[in-house]
Design a protein around this nucleic acid. Structure first.
Lengths: 310, 310
DNA sequence: ATGAGGTCATAGGCTGGAGTTATGTCCAGC
DNA sequence: GCTGGACATAACTCCAGCCTATGACCTCAT
């Protein structure tokens, strides 16, 4: 009876807003509504009301209130963990958005490929902010050629690219590897395959990004000896579109592991291992040849490059 | 002049709210403010204003508006991708929260361990919703013993547990593996180690969850032959607290790979491989012995279990 | 016991953001 | 030149969330 599902039940109406989630995290940390309120800069009654209305909205008690403070209930702990993930995504959004804005007075100008800007950079910026607060960063996203151009023109201090080699005129260091994986919808016949031969992959019509995408180049190179890539099943312009098409069962696709998070753990898409082909590409930090990064650029570089000791 | 940065610059004030992000995604999909407005159930001027104020807030133009529609700018595409991740996290929140609420008339009652409820279940619920809309699910989170109890008492239809074996009285199937990894802050000396010997790990004082946690049991078992676990450096009550302590350099810790997302890619924490020890645990779906799941429980099970063909 | 200091809840009044409808501007194509 | 789609502007309404002030309750020290 309670839910004839009024169609206005959009996500927004079922989910508390960011402010409420931030507040909840603060309450969890402090064990007190009042102190949490202080932390987020509102009054204690405001905090009390906000949490209460969140409990109403979710239909679950989140806190055990006592005159000695407030502790999370079991359900509250779970909700808090989910909220934390939302807030972390929002922090990444914020870090990225600030870099997009700052353009002018920024002390560190970064140019990065789309994939890196999308999936990796926000995290790095958060880490950088933690270590060197107040470093204003600006971000420019583009393909490898554009990144190289910016660096050589002195319009960027540090670049990040995917690809097989360091672009002409630049020095660089490999900071990570990005594996390409073949994925299909769970209903696809390949989903039950133990593993695929390179030949099968080469012959199969795939859902791909448009020509010129980095993913496609790697794939071409890796499969050249196995007869080359078959004619694509579909060519789409964004990673998201590719994921969507593959997820709805249109066919197999090849994507960067970075682009697949949620989809894999929710089993909307499943990986299909391919035997004997190395579908990796390198992620590199790059800079104009001979000009090792200094200052803020060095800070960011050392954040990202630690693993390879660069 | 424009920004003497009023200290009220909390996350909430710098980041657009969920509604705005959902709207932006709709605009990206439809290529038109008006149609996006219709999709999210608001008027065209409202949508126009919302996007405009988001652009003001971020200081970046997101759309190229023309009398023929609206397309994302380059920056807009990036912002949209970041927004998508926030919205996805919010959807997971929503899926989980609904399961927490529904208690009453739910057709599928799930009991799950904390780790699974926290990291995996929301994704499964989203997938389940996509395949079987309208399945009301209720969730109860607890440790393995609690899950078993619920199932045997007929208070839950399907359970998910971590651990080395299927609990007494239940049948089950392994649906995935969860690797435990040793992680340290990037500044820790281990961060530069190629790999660790089991002996070193056993001897080192670690940051751990309190006694009785699943992680700790596995670790104990795996290191028993190497002299057993040393006295812990710190015992904390939540995964988050452990991550926090390790991240600020207090020492090494051992965590489920599931719990480490952001932290690894942002390099707040780095993995340290350990030679020759199998730090895995199995994630199992379980049900009362002899009563193979049917109906909605079967649907959910087949969502999660596909990979092992169960 | 009794008062101090902490926690949370309630009440009343204010404000601003976001929504709505109505209308204007601009461009493309018939 | 007119029609239709798409976005912008304007004026008005309304409610969600905030603040201050106050009350109730518990614990602990005096």
């Amino acid at each position: 009876m309670s839910s004839p599902v009024p169609p206005r039940s959009s996500l927004t109406h079922r989910v508390p807003d960011l402010g409420a989630m931030v507040l909840l995290l603060a309450v969890a940390r402090h064990g007190s509504l009042g102190r949490a309120a202080k932390e987020v800069g509102i009054s204690q009654p405001a905090a009390s009301g906000r949490i209460r209305s969140m409990e109403r909205q979710l239909g679950v008690a989140l806190l055990d209130r006592s005159p000695r403070g407030s502790r999370l209930t079991d359900a509250g702990a779970l909700v808090t963990d989910w909220a934390r993930r939302v807030v972390e995504a929002a922090e990444a959004f914020d870090a990225g958005a600030q870099a997009l804005r700052d353009r002018r007075d920024s002390r560190l100008r970064v140019a990065a490929s789309m994939t890196i800007a999308e999936y990796l950079l926000p995290g790095w910026l958060i880490a950088l902010r933690a270590e060197r607060p107040g470093t204003a960063v600006s971000l420019l996203a583009g393909n490898s050629a554009a990144v190289a151009l910016r660096l050589l023109a002195g319009e960027a201090d540090l670049g990040f690219v995917e690809g097989l080699s360091t672009p002409e005129g630049l020095d660089g260091t490999v900071i990570a590897h990005d594996r390409l994986v073949v994925v299909v919808a769970p209903s696809h016949s390949w989903a039950r395959r133990e593993r695929l031969t390179p030949g099968e992959l080469a012959e199969a019509p795939l859902i791909l990004r448009e020509h010129g995408s980095g993913t496609r180049q790697i794939l071409d190179a890796a499969l050249a000896v196995h007869g080359g890539l078959a004619r694509p099943l579909l060519e789409l312009s964004s990673t998201t579109a590719v994921k969507g098409a593959a997820g709805s069962g249109a066919g197999p696709c090849v994507l960067s592991e970075l682009a697949l998070g949620e989809e894999l753990s929710a089993r909307r898409l499943v990986k299909v291992p391919v035997a004997g082909v190395r579908l990796r590409r390198q992620l590199r930090a790059v800079w104009p040849a001979g000009h090792r990064p200094t200052g803020p650029a060095r800070d960011l570089l050392s954040l990202t490059a630690r693993e390879t000791g660069a």
